[in-house]
Amino acid sequence: MPPGDEPLPASGADQHYRALERLYGSAPVNAKFASKLHIPGEGRSQLTFTVSPEDYHAAGAAHGTIYFKMLDDAAFYACNSLVTDRFLLTTSFNLFFSKPVRAGQVTAEGHWVSGRRRVFVAEARLVDEEGEEIGRGTGTFMKSRIPLSSLPGYAAGGPSGL
């Protein structure tokens, strides 16, 4: 690489976001879902996942548990992008289902709404492949006593492990 063309080191915020993405990928429950988390910036997250017949309820569309999981994860990671020391916990979540989805890629978009000390609020929405909203939710999250640096998925190369 010619001098001056070296890649710039990632900022502390970017390192935190990548560590949160690794944390998501390392959670055992996520092995059950064809999903991927991306945190593009402070207070935002994007989760893409694929709905397949294994996710259906008896009437042939995605079960509400899929909606909840992806909305909760998107809102959660939008908030935890603001917190570099502690793991957050969901304390409440409200859902609205607007359209059934049967198959294909769905995107959950999360964004932080308020709170920066102990309690955080975020919203998330689900969008299908055609760009139509299929659900939305609002969650409340609270700082736990669990240090992010103690979690193997986060610590492996995260801000404290660099």
Rank of each mutant, 00 (worst) to 15 (best):
A19I: 02
L89P: 03
I134F: 05
A58Y: 12
S150V: 07
A108R: 00
A62V: 07
E129V: 08
Y24G: 01
V121F: 02
N30M: 13
P2D: 14
T48N: 07
V51I: 11
K32Y: 13
K69V: 13
Q46H: 12
A78L: 01
L37V: 12
G60A: 04
F120W: 01
F33E: 09
K32F: 15
G139H: 02
E130M: 09
L126N: 04
I134W: 02
A62R: 03
T65W: 06
A13D: 15
L162T: 13
G43S: 11
G115V: 03
F120A: 00
F120K: 01
A31H: 13
P3Q: 05
V29S: 12
M70C: 05
A61F: 13
R118S: 11
A156Y: 10
H63C: 09
L151E: 09
R136H: 07
S45M: 03
Y24L: 06
A31I: 14
T84L: 12
G110M: 05
E133D: 08
F93W: 07
T65M: 10
S45P: 08
E123A: 00
G60M: 04
P7A: 06
A34D: 15
I146T: 12
H38P: 09
L126V: 05
G153Y: 08
V113G: 00
T50K: 14
G139F: 02
P40M: 05
E129T: 08
G25I: 10
E123Y: 01
V121Q: 00
S92V: 10
R118Q: 10
G153H: 07
D72C: 00
G64V: 02
Y56L: 13
F97K: 05
K143N: 15
T50C: 15
L148C: 12
V83D: 15
G161C: 10
K143A: 12
L82K: 03
L126P: 08
G43H: 07
D55E: 08
R86A: 15
Y56K: 08
E133I: 09
I66H: 03
A27I: 11
Y154L: 05
A108F: 01
V83F: 03
A10K: 12
V51M: 06
P28L: 06
T140P: 06
S149R: 14
D14C: 09
S11G: 11
R117W: 09
S45G: 04
S144Q: 03
G4H: 04
I134K: 03
P100V: 05
N94Y: 11
P9W: 01
N80Y: 00
F96T: 14
P2L: 14
W112N: 00
V51D: 04
S52H: 05
L8I: 03
G104C: 06
P3M: 03
P2T: 15
F49K: 01
D73E: 11
G110K: 01
G110Y: 00
D72N: 00
S114M: 09
L71M: 04
G153E: 10
F76S: 00
A124H: 02
S92L: 09
E130A: 11
A59W: 11
C79V: 01
Q105T: 15
D14E: 14
V113T: 02
S45D: 06
L89E: 03
D72A: 00
G158V: 07
T91Q: 08
G12H: 00
T48H: 05
R145K: 15
A156K: 11
G104P: 04
F49V: 07
G43D: 11
G153P: 10
